Measured scan of single mutants.
Amino acid sequence: TRVETATETAWISLVTALHLVLGLSAVLGLLLLRWQFPAHYRRLRHALW
């Protein structure tokens, strides 16, 4: 049971790290898009909202 718990903890930390990385890359990508294509971003936002 001790090994299982350790594996579970490792998986949880791995998944958390993955989610953090994905979230950060998504935010960075959005910022980059907004910085590179302001007109396109505004049009996209206008279409979405």
Rank of each mutant, 00 (worst) to 15 (best):
T7L: 09
T1V: 13
A47D: 07
L33D: 05
E8H: 01
A39Q: 13
W35V: 14
E8Y: 01
W35F: 15
L22G: 13
Q36G: 13
L32Q: 01
W11E: 07
E4I: 07
L28V: 03
T16R: 07
H46P: 08
I12W: 05
H40L: 12
T7K: 09
L32E: 01
A17G: 07
V21Q: 02
W49L: 05
F37Q: 05
T5S: 02
A10M: 05
L20N: 05
L20F: 11
L20V: 13
E8D: 11
Y41C: 15
R34W: 10
L31D: 04
L20I: 12
L31I: 11
Y41R: 02
R43T: 12
A26R: 02
R45T: 08
T1G: 05
R45H: 00
H40D: 11
I12F: 06
G29V: 14
R42Y: 14
A17W: 02
L33I: 05
L18M: 09
L33K: 12
L30A: 13
R45Y: 11
T1Y: 11
R45S: 05
L28A: 03
H40N: 09
A39L: 11
L44R: 04
A10Q: 13
L20S: 08
S25C: 15
T1Q: 15
V27Q: 00
R34T: 07
H19F: 15
V27G: 08
T7C: 01
A39N: 13
A47I: 07
L20T: 06
H19C: 15
R2T: 15
V15N: 13
L20H: 01
Q36T: 10
L32N: 05
W11A: 04
R34H: 05
V15D: 00
T7A: 15
T7S: 15
T16S: 10
Y41T: 13
A26W: 06
W11T: 04
L18D: 00
S25P: 03
R45V: 07
H19L: 12
W35I: 14
A26Y: 07
T16F: 07
R34L: 06
T16V: 13
L28K: 02
S25N: 10
A17R: 03
T7V: 12
E8S: 06
F37Y: 12
T16K: 03
H19Y: 15
A6S: 14
W11I: 10
A10V: 07
L18R: 05
A47S: 12
T1L: 12
L18S: 08
V15L: 11
A26H: 04
L44Q: 04
T9Y: 07
W49P: 10
L31H: 06
I12Y: 10
A6G: 14
L31R: 04
R43Q: 11
L30Q: 00
L33S: 06
L14M: 11
L30T: 04
T7W: 03
L20W: 01
L22N: 06
L24I: 11
A47C: 05
L44E: 02
A6H: 02
R43Y: 06
L18Q: 03
W35S: 11
R2H: 11
W35M: 15
F37I: 01
P38M: 11
L32Y: 08
A17Y: 05
H46N: 12
W35Q: 15
R45E: 04
P38Y: 13
G29A: 11
E4M: 04
V15Y: 06
I12G: 03
A39E: 15
T1P: 02
T16N: 06
